[in-house]
Nucleic acid binder design. Structure first.
Length: 453
RNA sequence: GCCCGGGUGGUGUAGUGGCCCAUCAUACGACCCUGUCACGGUCGUGACGCGGGUUCAAAUCCCGCCUCGGGCGCCA
């Protein structure tokens, strides 16, 4: 940038007071010998009498600020030690090497500015001396995310999304966005949130399924989307949300086996990204060793899966062909396998209409699920791309094809064979970090009871 | 949708009929303390979700309401 350009910008060089943050130094970058201005939150004040320490916290860590009462200006001491915890301050002073300080450096202040005073009684304690329950934490998410271990979850979540996006690009995908306000549901089964759209009945979208299929028939061919989905089920569990974030993938000219390859690739990329780039966050969360999945994920057919569940002897009643896997069955199988695995070749009748059946066995579908030992992560499959078969599938599942004409119509104009899948970001975060509740993996969860904040 | 459990100071808890004008920790207020790092010490402020009932006596038992969490189903 030239001098001339900089003078026309929002921050003019000779008005330093208009950009106080420009000169801010992160606590982690405060090196001995420098005079710096740091800014952040008052984590704690330890007043020992003649000497007192203010611990300042910012996004990079904590820095100790020393106040020697007899040797320093009274106003400075009064301002620095008179603030409540979690107030926002900026402090200018000299950084000194000090082996007795927690980080081996401390700041000797010349001036302290209180930018925002905090109320003395906090709804939760960011220093973590006293635990808070999840509802209290969610009601006060701003304070909650001042805790380094809570912040770490969302830094890791961001890294998962980065790694997944990079992986998708590496296999030739284009990122798309599809509408979240829609006229009809996807599968007809799940409850939708009804809304009014200029006087017309409409719904919050339950899944990008139909839209992403329409796009594999477009010139884009191979696409992914990261976006919200909305489901009006009144479930109350630690693994369901009414608004979740889905990672959807769909590609032309691949089958369900190749779709599983991509699925496995994205998940491994997510684990590897976190292992490579989030060691500090993992440390904060207390991970001794973070294991990335190695080797190929086992691919069990549905038939093999129910046989294996029955062989564990964990279930009171044996599964028979055609049964869906109950939560109990999923857990028994997950314990038995001990890692991620696919279940393939599901009975057609428990998979949606858009999943293709085997030509030589119409009772068997090319649908698959990716499972973590704790829960289902992904649902996907080879799609039905043939117009006549698709419309027949609608009718067999009791759906009216006319309602989905915008979708089926495009299958008349050259829809290539295609396959894809979708997984829930929150479930990936939750299983990766072994979080007890899916609400931990969302900043502001929407569940049966919670609409605010 | 069906079923189960819980709500005690700001926060997290102890207390299952009288021992409770309610325990402990932390926070908050006051005072003491020159190397803390969950700083320490002394003193103090502060709560039984709401309404009704049973009982000589209710935080505790019963009913209704509000509210939160969990199990199943279904799903990601």
């Amino acid at each position: 940038m030239t001098d001339g350009a900089s003078k026309t910008g929002p921050f003019k060089g000779h008005h330093r007071e208009q950009r106080p943050m420009q000169n801010r130094t992160y606590t982690a970058d405060a090196d001995p010998g420098e005079t710096v201005t740091v800014a952040g939150w008052v984590h704690e004040i330890r007043d020992l009498g003649g000497i007192a320490f203010l611990i300042l916290r910012d996004k990079t860590g904590k820095l100790q600020i020393k106040f020697e009462k007899d040797e320093m200006d009274d106003d400075l001491v009064e301002t620095g030690l008179g603030v409540h915890r979690e107030s926002v301050v900026s402090v200018t002073g000299r950084v000194e090497e000090e082996p007795r300080a927690p980080t081996d450096v401390e700041l000797v202040p010349d001036s302290v500015d209180v930018l925002a005073e905090a109320d003395p009684e906090l709804p939760l304690d960011p220093s973590g001396k006293v635990e808070a329950e999840l509802p209290t934490r969610l009601d006060n998410r701003t304070l909650d995310l001042r805790k380094p271990e809570v912040k770490a979850i969302f830094e890791i979540r961001a890294e998962i999304l980065r790694a997944v996006r990079d992986y998708f690009r590496s296999v030739g995908c284009t990122e798309i966005n599809t509408p979240k306000i829609v006229a009809t549901g996807t599968e007809g089964g799940t409850e939708l949130f009804p809304i009014t759209y200029f006087g017309q009945e409409a719904f919050m979208n339950q899944s990008p399924q139909l839209f992403k299929q329409l796009m594999v028939g477009s010139g884009l061919e191979r696409i992914f989307e990261v976006g919200p989905i909305f489901r009006a089920e009144e479930h109350n569990t630690p693994r369901h949300l009414n608004e979740a974030t889905m990672i959807d993938f769909e590609s032309s000219f691949i089958d369900h086996n190749e779709a599983m390859d991509v699925c496995e690739g994205t998940l491994k990329a997510a684990y590897e990204g976190v292992a490579e780039n989030c060691q500090e966050q993992l440390d904060r969360l207390g991970y001794e060793e973070f294991e990335t999945p190695d080797g190929d994920f086992p691919r069990l057919t549905y038939e093999e899966a129910i046989e294996r569940v029955n062989a564990t002897g964990e279930l009171d009643e044996q599964l028979v062909w055609g049964d869906d896997l109950s939560t109990e069955a999923e857990k028994a199988l997950g314990d038995d396998i001990g890692g991620h695995y696919f279940i393939t070749d599901w009975p057609s009748e428990i998979k949606p209409f858009y999943i293709q059946d085997y030509d030589d066995d119409p009772d068997l579908s090319k649908g698959f699920d990716l499972m973590h030992p704790r829960m289902e992560l992904v649902s996907g499959g080879q799609r039905e791309h043939r117009y006549d078969e698709l419309v027949t599938g609608f009718e067999q599942q009791g759906l009216d094809p006319d309602q989905f004409e915008y979708y089926t119509k495009m299958f008349k104009y050259g829809m290539p064979p295609h396959a894809g899948w979708a997984y829930g970001v929150e479930r990936v975060v939750m299983t990766m970090l072994d979080l007890p509740n899916i609400r931990e993996a969302v900043l502001f969860p929407r569940d049966r009871q919670r609409l605010s904040p």
